[in-house]
Amino acid sequence: MVNAMMIPGSPRALCRLLVAAALSAAAAAHAGGWQQNLAIGGFDKVHIYTPDSHSPIGDGKALLIVLHGCVQPIDTYLTANLEDAAEEFGMVVAVPEAMNKAGYGCWSYWQGTKSRSAGDYKNLIGLANSMSGDSARGIDPDQVYIAGLSSGASFANTTACLAPDVFAGMGISAGPSIGTSASGAIGPCETADVASRCSAYAGGHASHFATQIASIAHGGADNTVNRCYNEQNASGMAGVYRVELQPGTTTLTEGGYTAEESLWEDGRVSMLRLNGVDHSWSGGENASGSYISGAGINYARYLGQFFRDHNRRVDRSPTPGSVGVDNAIEGGQVPPR
């Protein structure tokens, strides 16, 4: 406890010290950590990691919903290094278990009605809105994102197309193109008009594509889901956003791991080749678990940076006195647009 009688100086200085002490105590009481097996947003089982940090842009924390792949328990994401990305970028991470699974525990991207009011599409939109609408969580509704692996990637892509007003961005890893069949996931590449399908899914919400962004990734050593989908999905989303591919590629390095990155105009779409990664979520060094790879860069961390740098919904315009208490204490800087 701070004893006011022991603090010299003006009342204003005393007030600042008391505020700093209160903030320090609050941070200690709410350190980042996992909550497991929560029932929320239409799902019976969701693992949620809440960081102690805030997003360096916007107002509050970001939210990343991560969808598992087929035959992949969500518990495996507890050892996928998601915490690193969460803490660095002030990003709450939610990992739900599909309620309406298809064969092999997959998200059923090839079955049923693709609608905002149907099945797990409805549940994911409900999860996003429940979490961002809960003031106690401190989530910025302009920084809500969705990602996934394999069947989860395709389902995440479809959901982001259905609700571009809800999801500011997506991270699609080793996902068959939206609207393809189950056999297309593990057989020859199915040609798909991703741009046309995505736009049709959005219906009256299509205007929100003007501010949505997408990262498309695939393991360079993936021999399960055809790697043709990487370029098909990236060029398809670029078609939705009406942006052109920029010349050249960039080699990204993290520790001893690399990825090749291609970018479209204004960073609206990125395409990654995750070198050395098989059909797994790329978790970075020491990541482990079922279909979790420790042989590539940390894709969640890449997403945190990509979303931070290219989010088009937050107001990045500096205003007098706009530096918050957290940024002032931590010396954080909002990157330029």
Rank of each mutant, 00 (worst) to 15 (best):
T250G: 10
S10C: 07
I139D: 06
G171S: 13
V325K: 14
G236T: 02
R12G: 09
P176M: 08
G276I: 11
E97V: 07
V243M: 10
V2S: 13
S317G: 00
N123K: 15
T159P: 02
L23Q: 14
A128C: 07
G255M: 09
I186T: 10
R301F: 07
A259W: 14
F306L: 10
I178E: 02
R16D: 13
T79I: 01
V225A: 05
A31S: 08
Y229E: 01
V71I: 02
Q35W: 00
A163C: 06
L18W: 07
G304F: 06
N123I: 02
P141R: 01
P141V: 02
Q212N: 11
D222G: 07
D52W: 05
P176W: 03
I65Q: 13
M99R: 15
T250N: 14
C15S: 15
G126V: 04
N100L: 13
A20C: 11
G126I: 06
A28M: 14
L252T: 09
R312A: 13
H30D: 08
T158R: 08
N223C: 01
A174P: 01
A153S: 14
Q36M: 01
N3V: 09
A328H: 14
H218T: 04
V71C: 01
F307R: 04
S151L: 06
P96A: 12
A174K: 02
L18D: 06
S108Q: 09
I329H: 12
P96V: 02
L127N: 07
C161Q: 01
E231S: 15
G90Y: 01
V325Y: 14
D222P: 00
N230G: 09
L303F: 13
G187C: 07
G236C: 05
A21H: 14
C15H: 13
L245V: 10
Y257M: 12
N327M: 10
E260C: 15
A13E: 07
L78Q: 06
A31W: 02
S108G: 15
E254G: 06
